[in-house]
Design a protein around this nucleic acid. Structure first.
Lengths: 320, 320
DNA sequence: GGGATGGCATAGCTTCGAGCTATGGCGATG
DNA sequence: CATCGCCATAGCTCGAAGCTATGCCATCCC
C-alpha cells in the first residue's frame, strides 16, 4: 500500500471513471488501472466494481475511503508543515525568463512548484536576457533564466540548464525555404526582428554583419509573440528559438546552416542558464524552485518530452 | 513520500539508531539510510541530526513526527478494517505440517500472516503426512502441507509448492560417509527411523527392501527431533529431509545415490503440497494463508534464501 | 444492424529505485 | 593504540511503475 495508490483510488472514486482519474493524476490510464489492481491484491479484496459506464466502490472500498482520504490529506499536510518551517508557506518568488521559455518549460515547472508551495506568490518577468540580467543585479528578481554567452557577469552565478537551437520561421503558405538555409540566402527575404533588449536581435544582426550582408528589415520592434504573428501574416521571416514553435502550427521552421563551423558551437545554438546573485543569499523559495526546475527538466529530458531543438544540459555534478 | 519511508523514519526516531531501526524494519541498514535520505530530499529538509552515538529529529523532523505516526497507523487500520469485512479480524486457522517444514518455512509464513491478521488464532498440528491427511478429511484441519506421492486422495486437492531432497545424516565425529552413498552401503550402518505415521519411515524401509538389503535398525520410533538427537549422539544414521539440517550444525549430510535412475524423480526427492478439502468451501483465513504462503515462498525462492536441497515449485498458473 | 465511440484491460517494453553485500571513515571506548 | 560500533558510500540486481499500442466490450447513433 502506497500513498500514491491511495490517491489513485480516491481519484477513481471521485470521478467514477478510470480514464478521467488517470487524467486527473497525470498518468496513463493503464498505469492507474494496474496500480489499483496492485492495491486490491495487496489488501486481498476488490475495492471497485467495474461497470461498463460507471465505477463504484465495493464494501471494502467504502471502508477504505475515509482512511485513504485522511492518509492522503495527512501526507499533504506534512509537506505543508515542513514547508512552513522552512519559510516556504508564505513568501515570494520573482522569476525572470525569456519569452520562449515562459510558454513552455517555465509553465511546467511552475505548475509543480505551485502545487508544492501554494503559499508562495509568483511574479514572472518576461523579457530579453539583458533586461533580466539588469533586473537581477538591481535586486528586482530572485532568479532568472537567461541566455548564457559564456561571459561572466558581475555578481551573478550562471548554471547551464538547456541548450536550444535557433531556426528561421516562415508562414506555411510562403515560398519554401527548404531544410537548411545559410545566412546569405536568408538576407534575400524580408526580416522581422525584435525590439532592442533581445539577445536574438543582436545575434541576428551580428550574423548578417559577419557574413557581409545587409538584411532587409520588414518590421522592427515588438515582443516575441508580436514577431511571430507578423511572420504568420507573411510580413517576413524571423530567426527565433525553436522552442516558440509549439503552439504555432502555421509556422514552418528551417534550420540554419553555419558553413565551415561546428554548428552546435556557433551562434545558431545557445545556452540557457539559471542565474542568481552571488552577493546575497538566495531565498529558501529560490532554492526550492531551483531544485524543482532541475528535477522537472531532467525528467522531461529522460522521457523525451522536450520540444524539438532543445537539449537538457546535465548539471556538472551529474555529468562528472 | 511513501508510507514505508515514514515507517522507517519512525523506527529511527524511536530507536535513536539507524542500525537498530533497520533491524526493526527487517531491512539492511544502508537501505534504511538511503530511504531516509530520499525522504529528506523529497521534503527538501533534513529530518534527523546524525550524532556519532545518537540520532535526534530536527525541527522539521519533529513537525513530521505526529503526522507520520498517524499515516502509518491509518494504513494499518485500513488493512484491519478491510480484513474485518472479509472475516479476517476474528477467526481460526488450523494448519498441519510435517516437522521438517514447521521449523523452517512455516515459521516464516506464519510470521507474515500473523502480522497481517493478528486476530486469527493459529493452531498448528505437527505430524506425519498420513496423520495430517486423515485430520484434513475429518475436518480437523483447514490446510496442511503434506508429502505428495502423486496419488489422488479422496476429497482433497493438492497444490505442489516445494520439492525437497532426502539425505543421510550422521554425527560429525563419526566415520565420513563421503559425498554420496548408495542404499546398499547405507545398510552397513545402524539406522535410526521415525515412528509409524511418517512417510519417511515407509520410504526408508521400502528403499531397503527394493535393494534387497535388510537394514540394521538401531532405534525405532519417535518424532523428527528425537531422531536427530539420537543421530547427533552417534546412535546411528538416518534418512531425513535436508530441510531439518538448519539448526543442527553438528550433523553432516550425505546425498543419496539412486543408481541407474533419474535421481530427481526417484524416492530421494519428494514433493510438498498444500492440501485442502474439496467438499467444503475453504475459509477466508485459509485462502489468505494460501496467498501468503505462495508469495513468501516465491520471494524466498527468488532471493535464494531457501535452505539447500529445497526447490520452489511454481504454481501452474505462473509456469504456463 | 453496423460502424463509431468511449472505457477498461492486456501485452510488451523501458527505466527508476528499493533492496542487497561489501567496504570505508570516524568517534568512542577499553 | 587497537577495537568496536555506527553510519555513509559504492556497485549491483531485479521488481515494479511508468509508458505506448492494442484488444475487447458495451453503448450510441445513423
Amino acid at each position: 500500500m502506497t500513498i500514491k495508490q491511495l490517491s489513485y483510488f480516491l481519484a477513481v472514486v471521485d470521478t467514477g471513471r478510470f480514464t478521467q482519474a488517470a487524467a486527473l493524476c497525470r498518468v496513463a490510464q493503464p498505469t492507474l488501472s494496474k496500480q489499483i489492481r496492485t492495491l486490491e491484491e495487496d489488501l486481498g479484496e476488490t475495492l471497485l466494481t467495474r461497470g461498463h459506464d460507471n465505477v463504484t466502490p465495493t464494501a471494502a472500498g467504502e471502508a477504505l475511503l475515509p482512511l485513504a482520504r485522511r492518509i492522503v490529506a495527512d501526507s499533504e499536510t506534512a509537506r505543508m508543515e515542513i514547508a512552513e518551517l522552512a519559510g516556504l508557506r508564505r513568501g515570494r518568488l520573482r522569476l525572470g525568463a525569456t519569452p520562449s521559455l515562459c510558454v513552455s518549460v517555465v509553465a511546467d515547472v511552475l505548475e509543480v512548484f505551485h502545487g508544492r508551495y501554494p503559499g508562495i506568490a509568483l511574479q514572472i518577468a518576461e523579457g530579453g536576457s539583458q533586461d533580466l540580467v539588469a533586473d537581477l543585479q538591481r535586486g528586482q528578481l530572485d532568479l532568472a533564466l537567461v541566455i548564457d554567452r559564456g561571459e561572466t557577469v558581475r555578481d551573478l552565478a550562471l548554471t547551464p540548464v538547456l541548450r536550444e537551437e535557433l531556426v528561421v520561421v516562415a508562414a506555411r503558405g510562403r515560398p519554401d525555404l527548404g531544410e537548411h538555409i545559410g545566412i546569405v540566402e536568408l538576407a534575400a527575404h524580408p526580416l522581422v526582428v525584435n525590439r532592442e533588449g533581445y539577445e536574438l536581435r543582436e545575434v541576428t544582426l551580428a550574423a548578417c554583419a559577419a557574413a557581409g550582408v545587409t538584411p532587409r528589415i520588414a518590421v522592427e520592434g515588438g515582443e516575441m509573440d508580436a514577431v511571430l504573428r507578423m511572420v504568420e501574416r507573411g510580413l517576413g521571416v524571423a530567426i527565433v528559438p525553436s522552442l516558440v514553435l509549439a503552439g504555432h502550427p502555421t509556422l514552418r521552421a528551417t534550420r540554419l546552416d553555419e558553413s565551415g563551423e561546428h554548428a552546435d558551437r556557433g551562434w545558431s545554438h545557445r545556452t540557457i542558464s539559471l542565474a542568481h546573485r552571488t552577493d546575497v543569499a538566495p531565498t529558501r523559495a529560490a532554492q526550492a524552485f531551483r531544485e524543482d526546475l532541475l528535477s522537472v527538466l531532467a525528467r522531461t529530458s529522460r522521457t523525451g518530452h522536450l520540444p524539438p531543438g532543445v537539449r537538457y544540459v546535465h548539471p556538472p555534478t551529474l555529468t562528472a
